[in-house]
Amino acid sequence: MAPAAPASTGDAHGHATRAQALAKSGKTDEALAEFDRAIAIDPHHAEALYNRGLLYQRERQHQLAVDDFTSANGLTPQRAEPLLARAISYLAIDKIKEAAADL
Rank of each mutant, 00 (worst) to 15 (best):
A7Q: 09
E59W: 12
F35W: 11
L75A: 01
I93R: 15
L55Q: 09
R58F: 12
G10M: 07
T70M: 08
A19N: 02
A72Y: 00
R37H: 06
G14P: 00
S25A: 15
A48E: 05
A19F: 04
L49R: 12
Q20Y: 15
D29K: 11
A87M: 04
R37M: 08
S89G: 12
A23T: 02
D67C: 05
R60L: 11
L83C: 10
T28C: 05
P6M: 09
L49Q: 12
Q63I: 13
N51L: 06
A80S: 06
E98N: 12
L49K: 07
A46V: 04
I39N: 00
L32K: 06
L91I: 14
G14L: 10
Q78M: 05
A12D: 10
T70Y: 03
Q20S: 13
G26V: 02
R18P: 04
A12K: 02
A87F: 14
I96V: 15
E81R: 09
R58T: 13
A46H: 09
P43L: 00
G14I: 01
P43H: 01
G14S: 08
A87N: 06
L64G: 06
K27L: 15
P82V: 09
A33W: 02
Q63K: 13
A87C: 14
L84D: 08
T76G: 02
S8C: 07
Y56G: 11
A21S: 08
R60I: 07
H44K: 14
E98R: 04
P43I: 00
L55W: 03
S8R: 05
K95V: 11
I39L: 03
H13W: 08
A65K: 01
A21T: 14
T28R: 12
A101Q: 12
A2H: 05
A2R: 07
H15L: 14
L54Y: 09
L22I: 04
E47D: 15
A16I: 07
S71Y: 02
E34M: 01
A23L: 07
A65E: 09
A5T: 12
E81T: 05
A48R: 05
T76L: 10
G26A: 08
T9H: 11
E81V: 05
R79Q: 08
A72I: 06
A16T: 00
N73C: 06
K95M: 13
K97Q: 14
D102R: 06
R86M: 11
A92D: 15
T70C: 02
E98G: 06
Q61M: 13
Q63F: 15
G14C: 10
K24D: 14
I41F: 02
D42C: 06
H44Q: 12
A72G: 03
L32C: 01
L55H: 08
E47P: 00
L32Q: 11
I93K: 07
P43C: 02
A2I: 08
I39Y: 00
E34R: 07
R37P: 00
Q61K: 15
L49I: 04
M1P: 12
A65W: 00
A4F: 07
Q61F: 03
L55Y: 11
Y50Q: 13
N73L: 03
Y90W: 15
D94H: 15
A100M: 14
A5L: 11
A72E: 05
Q20T: 10
T70A: 09
